[in-house]
Simulated assay, not measured.
Amino acid sequence: MRALTVEPGRAGSLTVTEVPEPVVGPDELLVEGLALGVCGTDREIVRGEYGWAPPGKERLVLGHESLGRVRTAPPGSGFHAGDLVAGVVRRPDPVPCGACGHGEFDMCRNGRYTERGIKELDGFGSELWSVEPAYAVRLDPRLADIGMLMEPTTVVAKAWEQVDRIGARSWFEPRRVLVTGAGPIGLLAALLGMQRGLDVHVLDRVTEGPKPGLVEALGATYHHAPADDVAARLEPDVVIEATGAGQVVFDVMAHTAAYGIVCLTGVSAAGRRLPVDAGGINRELVLENDVVVGSVNANLRHYRQAADILAKADIEWLAGLITRRVPLDRAAEAIETNEDVKVVITLDENG
């Protein structure tokens, strides 16, 4: 069968490779791969900046934003042939640490976790893949064309859960949220904010292309002015930061409402230096009981939350996030960056 593989650490090694079909254990699902979402992590791996092959192998099957259809399922698994599913990316470390031992493997404390398509486990970028039922989540059949949005939605579900848990330290009824960045994570964060009945604002630097229209169609407000100006005017109760741009991060931190929560989901590039008023930031955080928290990855609970979020969303709006689809044999085109919101690689011949 065909699979999208890369040699981690070596730029330019991405290729479609013939690999053996998966050997499916008696307690595993055999899944026909339908599509694969592409994100910044995939691009880092292709550039040779990140990623680890499975032990004893040189190449890694790429892909963690999965969508597939069950071909065979073991009796009693809760799954049946024809079910639409997504695979969970992370697996707990074998030790395990306390967090992994309690099912919170997204919060692994010793770094020995593994991840499909990223760290020591082959991903979902193949025509067939296998997965344990405990690490698969069934999707609403209506999501057959856009279910690869599941994994980025889990990231958003966890981020909002973190906001809720921090807010619960005292009375907390947020009204206004600012989302910085109108990529898939930002737009999905805005979706969840709208589902919660909040006054949602989205900030991005572009003025053309699909992003402003997607925000407006959601019922949120789009901004493209400097982050410092927008945040100062809005004074949001919650910020979901999805750009990873250092200046944006510090600008929004300085302008939340009292008892504000800033949740960072964007990963910044190391090495860039910014002049920062550290004393002023410290004063603001302490005197206003503000919180800045980082959030990454997701556990099984967040996958189930994400399945519910997508099932309740407008399917046409979700479809608008996917701005380009390419077949597996042209997968290299999906890695190229342009003005796309989300690029998808189709794995089945009818995709």
Score class of each variant (00 low, 15 high):
Leu4His: 05
Gly9Leu: 05
Arg10Gly: 00
Arg10Phe: 13
Gly12Asn: 03
Gly12Phe: 10
Ser13Asn: 01
Thr15Leu: 04
Glu18Pro: 01
Glu21Thr: 03
Pro22Glu: 06
Val23Asp: 14
Pro26Lys: 11
Val31Met: 09
Val31Pro: 09
Gly33Pro: 13
Ala35Cys: 12
Arg43Pro: 02
Arg47Trp: 02
Glu58Leu: 05
Glu58Ile: 00
Glu58Met: 02
Arg59Thr: 14
Arg59Tyr: 00
Leu60Gln: 05
Gly63Leu: 05
His64Asp: 12
Val70Asn: 06
Pro75Lys: 13
Ser77Cys: 09
Ala81Gln: 14
Ala81Met: 11
Asp83Ser: 07
Ala86His: 01
Arg90Ser: 12
Arg91Lys: 09
Pro92His: 08
Asp93Tyr: 07
Asp93Gly: 15
Val95Cys: 01
Gly101Pro: 08
Glu104Pro: 01
Asp106Thr: 08
Met107Lys: 13
Gly111Pro: 09
Tyr113Val: 01
Thr114Cys: 00
Glu115Phe: 01
Ile118Val: 15
Glu120Phe: 03
Leu121Val: 09
Gly123Arg: 07
Glu127Pro: 04
Leu128Lys: 06
Val131Gln: 12
Pro133Leu: 06
Leu143Tyr: 12
Ala144Asp: 15
Ala144Glu: 15
Ile146Asp: 10
Met150Phe: 13
Met150Val: 10
Met150Asn: 10
Met150Lys: 03
Pro152Leu: 05
Thr154Met: 06
Ala157Asp: 09
Ala159Thr: 11
Trp160Asn: 04
Trp160Met: 02
Glu161Phe: 02
Val163Trp: 04
Arg169Ser: 10
Val177Ala: 13
Gly181His: 11
Gly183Ala: 12
Leu187Gly: 07
Leu192Asn: 06
Arg196Cys: 12
Arg196Val: 09
Gly197Val: 13
Val200Thr: 12
Leu203Ser: 05
Thr207Trp: 03
Gly209Pro: 11
Gly209Gln: 08
Pro210Met: 11
Val215Met: 10
Val215Ser: 10
Ala217Thr: 12
Thr221Ala: 10
Tyr222Gln: 10
Tyr222Gly: 06
His223Trp: 12
Pro226Asp: 06
Pro226Arg: 03
Asp228Val: 12
Asp228Arg: 15
Leu234Pro: 04
Pro236Asp: 11
Val239Glu: 06
Gly244Pro: 07
Ala245Phe: 01
Gln247Trp: 02
Gln247Phe: 00
Met253Lys: 01
His255Leu: 04
Tyr259Val: 04
Gly260Lys: 08
Ile261Arg: 10
Val262Gln: 02
Leu264Arg: 01
Ala269Met: 03
Arg273Asn: 02
Arg273Leu: 14
Arg273Lys: 07
Pro275Thr: 14
Asp277Leu: 08
Ala278Pro: 00
Ile281Leu: 15
Ile281Lys: 07
Ile281Met: 14
Gly294Pro: 12
Val296Ala: 14
Tyr303Met: 15
Gln305Ser: 09
Ala306Asn: 04
Asp308Pro: 01
Ile309Asn: 05
Lys312Ile: 00
Leu318His: 08
Leu318Phe: 09
Arg324Phe: 12
Arg325Trp: 04
Val326His: 03
Ala332Phe: 01
Ile335Lys: 07
Glu336Ser: 08
Glu336His: 11
Thr337Lys: 14
Thr337Phe: 07
Asp340Glu: 15
Val343Trp: 02
Asp348Arg: 15
Asp348Tyr: 00
Gly351Asp: 13
